Amino acid sequence: MRLELDTFKTVVESTPLVSIDLIVRNSDGRVLLGERTNRPAQGFWFVPGGRILKDEAFETAFKRLTSVELGVELSLSSASFLGPYEHHYSDNFSGDEFSTHYVVLGYEVVLDLEISELPSEQHGSYRWWGVDELLGSDLVHQNTKDYFG
C-alpha cells in the first residue's frame, strides 16, 4: 500500500522505515553499486534496495524490489540473509527539514547482470566495484561500506 504524500512525510518524520538492501555480487565477486539520484544519500554510490510496504510479505517485497531495482524477479530463497542494519540520514526524500531512519534487512545474491539493462529509476548509473575499492572510496556511502567492513 502506498501512502498519500503528506501522510508519508509524517510517517518518515515520526517512525523508522523497514527496508531491504540487495548486496549483489557477480561471479567475479565484484559488488553492484548505483549512484543515487534521490534523497537520502543522493549523489553517493549505494547498493540497490527499497522499502517494504505496509501489509507486504517479505517474499512479495523481495520479488518486487529485485524486479524494480535489478530488472530480474528473484525469490527470497535465492538470497543469503546478512542481518539487520540501521541507517540514519539527516535529510529525507522531500528535503532536509527532518531526518530519515531505516531498519534495513541486508540480503546478498550472486547474479551476473548487464549494467546497460538495469533500471534507472533510483540510480543514474551503475558499476561493479571491488570490495577494497568501495571501502576506500569517499564516493561510496558509509551505510553501504558497513555491509563489507
Rank of each mutant, 00 (worst) to 15 (best):
P84Q: 10
W45K: 07
G106R: 02
S116L: 07
K9Q: 14
A79R: 00
D91A: 09
D132T: 09
N143E: 08
I115G: 11
S77E: 15
V47M: 02
R127C: 14
N38T: 14
T60K: 08
P16W: 03
Y89K: 06
W129Q: 13
G130W: 01
S125W: 00
R30F: 04
H88W: 02
A79W: 01
H123Y: 14
F93T: 08
E114Y: 03
L82P: 04
F148T: 05
Q142P: 02
E97R: 15
L111W: 00
E59H: 06
T7E: 13
G50P: 02
G29D: 02
S19N: 12
T10R: 13
R30D: 14
N92C: 04
V18G: 06
W45N: 13
F8V: 08
F148M: 10
L32K: 06
T10P: 00
T60H: 01
N26D: 15
E108M: 14
L70M: 11
D96S: 15
F98M: 12
L118R: 13
E108T: 09
L105Q: 12
T37Y: 04
D55A: 07
T10M: 06
E133G: 09
G71E: 06
V11R: 13
G50T: 08
K9P: 03
S94Y: 12
G136K: 03
G130K: 09
G136Y: 00
D112K: 07
F98S: 09
Y102F: 14
A79E: 06
E35A: 13
G124F: 00
L76T: 01
R36E: 05
S125P: 08
D112V: 06
S137P: 07
P16M: 04
E59C: 05
T144S: 14
E59D: 13
G106F: 01
L70H: 02
R127T: 09
D55V: 02
Y126H: 10
V103R: 13
I52E: 03
L17H: 07
L76Q: 03
D55Q: 07
L134G: 11
T100W: 11
L76C: 03
L70W: 01
N38F: 03
V18C: 06
N143D: 08
V131N: 06
L3E: 12
W129H: 11
I115E: 15
Y107N: 04
D91G: 10
L17D: 07
S90H: 12
P119I: 12
Y102G: 06
N92Q: 03
R36T: 09
G83A: 11
H141L: 04
H88S: 11
S75Y: 01
S120L: 13
V103S: 10
V140K: 01
D96M: 08
F44Y: 15
L5H: 11
V72T: 10
E69A: 07
K54P: 14
N92V: 04
E121M: 08
E133N: 07
T10F: 00
G124V: 05
F148C: 10
V12D: 05
L139Q: 15
R2M: 05
Q122K: 11
R36I: 04
L76P: 00
G71V: 03
R30Y: 05
G49C: 03
E117L: 10
V109H: 05
W129S: 11
E86Y: 09
R39W: 01
Q122W: 05
S14M: 06
L76G: 04
